[in-house]
Simulated assay, not measured.
Amino acid sequence: MSIGNSPDGNFPEDERPFEDDREAEQLSIGRALRQARVEAGLTVDDVSNATRVRIAIVQAIEQDDFAPCGGDVYARGHIRTLARAVHLDPAPLLARYDAEHGGRPAPTPAAPLFEAERIRPERRGPNWTAAMVAAIVAVIGFVGFTVVKGSDSGDGTKTQVAEGSTPTTSKPVAKPTDTKPADPKPDPSDSAIAAAPQDKVTVQVSAVDGRSWISAKDHNGRMLFDGLLKKGDSKTFQDNSKINLILGDAGAIQLYVNGKKIEDDFQPGAVERLTYTKGDPQVG
């Protein structure tokens, strides 16, 4: 039994050259990765799920198309990741990629990046936006407080102006006994109605059995009131000649005209159009 080469010039089986390895070295990067993936029994989806590299990029790299990678740095990273996933040594593939694409990209200096991150907070200017927002909020708060305070102090005046010269309150305001009597304008009360002047028409409308919408106009057609009268509320209107009324729910309303109670039996829910003049109550 001889040791070494056989007489016919053939090598022992365990000393033959690695022809498969040489063939693999001649494969392109993409073909080498694809062949290793197939031999490992993996699909493109398997490799994509394992590496989190998108399927389209895996397929492009296996076809030696590195454009979808977005640059040499990303292409080298994908090659390294895919090679490890299919059990290949990434070093030869990376060396081939560098040789075919102009060499390994220069690393980005770490110091300037660190300095930029360190210096950036120091160059910040004052936060003018926050200051302006705070100033605007303060101004709005002051204006709102002023408006609310003015509204609280002017409620009585607003009511009087909205109703014009027409008396609208249903009950007189209690006043101290030592205060001078107020201007003897007729108030919407039974005593005021009883003392209604003879040269004018005075109409008191009271919602005694519920609420009702009412409308009141003078002899010129000027609107004296148009709105909802809630239960317990009362309105009094005066004119030199005539008062025209519309009652949305006449059954809920009690009328006093020129000091006299109107005894008409208005039906609940009935709409009544009424006209009253000077002297005895007259329904127009």
Rank of each mutant, 00 (worst) to 15 (best):
I79V: 11
I79L: 01
I79H: 00
R80Q: 07
R80W: 01
R80M: 03
R80I: 00
T81H: 01
L82D: 01
L82G: 01
A83N: 02
A83L: 02
A83T: 00
A83K: 01
R84A: 10
A85C: 13
A85S: 14
V86K: 05
V86G: 08
V86L: 06
H87N: 15
H87A: 15
L88K: 08
L88M: 10
L88H: 04
L88V: 04
D89K: 04
D89R: 05
P90C: 09
P90D: 08
P90K: 08
L93K: 03
L93C: 05
L93W: 01
L94F: 01
L94Q: 05
R96C: 02
R96F: 02
R96E: 07
R96I: 01
R96K: 13
Y97K: 05
Y97M: 05
Y97S: 05
Y97G: 05
D98C: 09
D98A: 13
D98F: 08
A99H: 09
H101I: 04
G102P: 10
G102E: 10
G102Y: 11
G102M: 09
G103Y: 12
G103A: 12
G103T: 14
P105D: 13
P105T: 14
P107F: 06
T108F: 11
P109V: 06
P109A: 11
P109D: 14
P109W: 08
P109H: 06
A110E: 15
A110H: 12
A111W: 12
A111M: 11
P112Y: 08
P112N: 07
L113P: 09
L113G: 15
F114S: 14
F114K: 15
F114D: 15
E115Q: 12
E115K: 10
A116N: 07
A116M: 12
A116T: 09
A116F: 11
E117H: 15
E117K: 14
R118I: 00
R118S: 10
R118L: 12
R120L: 13
R120D: 12
P121S: 01
P121M: 04
P121Q: 03
P121N: 03
P121W: 03
